[in-house]
Amino acid sequence: MAMEARSLDKPPQLGAFALNPEWRTRLADRAPFFVACLMLILLVAVYGTLRDGVFTLDELNVDTAAAMTLLLAATGQTIVLLRGGIDLSIGGMISLGTVLAATQFGETLVSAAAWTVFILAIGLGVGAVNGFLISVLRLQPFLVTLATWSILSGAALLILPIDGGSLPSGWMRFGNATFLGLSTSVWILFLLFLFWSWFRHTRLGLTIRATGSNERSAYLSGVSLTSVNVMSYGLSGLFAALAALYLTTQTGAGSPTIGKDYILPSVAAAVIGGISLFGGRGGLSGTIIGALILTIIGNLVFVLSVSSYWQPIVSGLILLTAVLASSLAERSARRSVG
């Protein structure tokens, strides 16, 4: 405590980096993101030495395809986390989306297109309801989205009690197509980058971030908390619906219980990528890195051919190491800022 008081009185010392304080603060803010990047490079390097053909286009296509459902779900989660909330209902929405797609699409293009739009609309609508309940009834995001998760999972189970259903073959071909050597998933990744570089500068993007970092001052500056909540949870629901649709192109079936596997990993991907659970800090590039880290961890565990019993231990330990490294890096970066 005494040390901190002294360092405040002194002018900022020039450390090893001759950067001005503002830049050093920015560096400290981004420390978890940089650690996540390093982590990903390290994991890919290890993965590459253990297996042949890692540094090929095919591997890139396969890995992004494996990561894409999580990535889409985590994109929505990122928006909500930036707002300072959390969305558990994406689990239910993903289940419901796959189930609807697998039972209703039919073989005609028109019905598939209509149902795609309808599923996206449900995602948007359910998310908007989440946001509305959270702001109007002043409820905790955790509880509201827990309840809607339960309701959506229930609806999914009513429509399709067990895994099954089928999707049009054209739908699956679209999901696994390649264009210019890159798979659909890589193109979606590009689109996500484009979306984010546009979205973060929009009025809504800035408002969500501002509200997440300080709700009170955002409110006092004239931000409507209700509309921010409706929009951010609505987007989260929309992305969950997109994740569901993408998932069906990979699995070719609906599952009323599959969504729960994406709830906590979507939060984990964002947090590994440097998004603060307290809102306002981080960006989609961090989440993408985080989702890729989680996917590569899964691959590594597979390549190491450890017994399936060991898989959770190994992935848990790697996850913990990654997060520990990033929080330690952030701390030391902040300390050097003073």
Partner: peptide, 19 residues
């Protein structure tokens, strides 16, 4: 160490499950 509670306890849960 400042690890977010959700991640820390989730990882411990998974590790215990495997163990």
């Amino acid at each position: 160490f400042g690890v977010p509670a959700i991640i820390m306890t989730l990882a411990v849960n998974v590790i215990l499950q495997g163990a």
